[in-house]
Amino acid sequence: MRTEDLIRAIAADAATPPKRLAPAVWIALAVSAVAAWIAAWGMLPPRPEVDPSFAAVRFPMKFVVTCAFGAAAAALAMRLARPGAALAPARVALFGAIAVLAAAMLVEMYVTPSGLWRERVMGINWLVCLVHVPLFSAAPLAAILLAMRRGAPGSPAGLGAAAGLLAGAIGATAYAAFCPNDSPLFVGVWYTLAVCLVTVVGAAVGARLLRW
């Protein structure tokens, strides 16, 4: 088959609607948010009332951190899925999210006597966090990876990792609403570990699923 013959055949297929990436990802994100929220609401008891003397800033800060990572991961994933897209802005966003978390942890260490650091890190039950964040991220990861199959990544594992980070951030956001630990030191250690777990799973699955 000569190339011009192939071109004729491809052009004749113009009427088949293209599988657009962006709308699929938006739908996946909506599904993810609902799925993570339902999972968290169904599996965890409501958290104790937010104590304004301790958590007035710390509680909302959890969402600032998870949402910053989520936004950065979404930007990164979209750019990794699109051939030729510039990655620099997404990298800046990711460094921004890391900086927000690091700053919150440093401020927490500054305002907390060092004797209390260990207690703040360990929280009430870190194992609950390590189990539930990946659990709440599972459906989002599946939805996002499925949408990303429409992408054309140079590195399927890289896109899978970004999808995992995004799913992890969504799961962590849902978990944060029910998690009784509000210290940035707890978030910085256990949330990070749990989200990293989801990221690794995303990379491993993506390496197979996102080849094209």
């Binding site: 192939l6 491809i10 657009r20 699109r82 051939p83 030729g84 897209a85 054309a152």
Partner: peptide, 21 residues
């Protein structure tokens, strides 16, 4: 060319065609 066809849904109209291809 086949990949361009099957993956044309990844093209963003704000993105130039040349680097994408």
């Amino acid at each position: 060319l086949l990949a361009i066809h099957l993956k044309r849904g990844t093209w963003d109209e704000r993105q130039p065609v040349g680097p994408w291809v």
